[in-house]
């Protein structure tokens, strides 16, 4: 690195050595302001008292977390039992996001592989084509998906026309519709990192494997996959994490009948319930969960690297 900058005009990294921390200041400010500050506000709000009809009163309380974990009945005066409602909502989100990620992986991996194995000249065109639908706003794309999936929609019309089915498959307003929506919303986040990994992969290794009598499946599993693993993991995280907190897909495609974490939180801030501390607490619990998942990933990754 140090030598690379020198070719321009005699400026090298050492020129700025004394200023290093000052030069980092802007990025720390930006990080602090756009990442830490909002999370800090949420953390504080989650410990405040709910104001009637939205807003907070500046009095410390654990009510929001209490509401999350304990069920005190419809009128709030029964002895506390464990509250399953929100645990169930979290579980549903984990499962829905997982299904969407799996779907994205199954479709995204071959797609990325296909693009990476095209001649170098045309690869950018394929990548470009993948991103085109994503120039359109997420809301519009989710609504379009609703049109496609509906009982009298093009998808069912087509399947009936081909004779594969005779009555429409009912997908809209079900969990499957939510999974399809999430998968579709975040597919490029799966394709692009895997593509970047496969593109760097040296296909001579696969040929070597074949020369050593590895079947295609074994070569894929033992040679290609371990080499592109970081790309696959990055793709999975990039699809999984936003899916976990999504609210457009469950609202529009799932019929807003079964909360996911994102819709639960949204409802607290802009919906009918208007309970900001509870929304903040749910956000903090979600954040903690995502952090644990990422830490587990990172630990496993580190272990794999030590062993490999």
């Amino acid at each position: 690195m140090a030598g690379g900058g020198g070719t321009g005009g005699g400026v090298s990294a050492s020129t700025y050595a004394g200023l290093r921390y000052w030069l980092l200041l802007p990025s720390w400010l930006v990080l602090g302001f756009i990442v830490l500050a909002p999370v800090g506000v949420m953390l504080i709000y989650s410990f405040l008292t709910k104001e009637f009809r939205g807003g907070v009163i500046w009095e410390f309380t654990l009510d929001a977390y209490d509401q999350f974990f304990f069920d005190r009945g419809l009128f709030g005066d029964e002895p506390p039992k464990i509250e399953w409602t929100y645990i169930l909502i979290f579980w549903r989100s984990i499962w829905q996001a997982g299904a969407a990620t799996l779907l994205a992986l199954v479709i995204g991996f071959p797609t990325a592989y296909f693009i990476a194995t095209r001649p170098e000249r045309v690869r950018p065109i394929w990548v470009f084509l993948i991103t085109i639908p994503y120039w359109v706003n997420l809301l519009i794309r989710t609504v379009s998906m609703k049109f496609l999936l509906r009982d009298q929609g093009p998808l069912n019309d087509f399947l009936i026309w081909t004779g594969l089915i005779d009555t429409p498959i009912h997908v809209i307003n079900t969990d499957v519709a939510v999974q399809i929506g999430l998968f579709y919303s975040y597919l490029p986040f799966m394709v692009l990192p895997i593509y970047a990994a496969v593109e760097r992969y040296d296909f001579a290794l696969s040929e070597a494997a074949a020369d050593l009598y590895a079947t295609k499946w074994v070569a894929l599993r033992r040679v290609l996959l371990p080499s592109v693993r970081p790309g696959v993991i990055a793709g999975c995280i990039l699809v999984y994490v936003p899916s976990l907190g999504a609210f457009l897909a469950p609202d529009l495609l799932g019929g807003a009948k079964n909360f996911m974490i994102g819709s639960l939180i949204e409802e607290q801030f802009k919906g009918n319930a208007g309970n900001w501390p509870f929304g903040a607490a749910a956000s903090m619990i979600l954040l903690t969960m995502v952090m644990i998942i990422l830490l587990l990933f990172a630990r496993q990754q580190a272990r794999a690297e030590r062993e490999g």
């Binding site: 419809l74 709030g76 409602t85 169930l88 909502i89 807003a256 009948k257 079964n258 909360f259 639960l264 409802e267 009918n272 319930a273 208007g274 309970n275």
Partner: peptide, 9 residues
């Protein structure tokens, strides 16, 4: 609000 949450969960 509690009823509404029960209905929409």
């Amino acid at each position: 609000d509690q009823i509404w949450t029960n209905v929409k969960k």
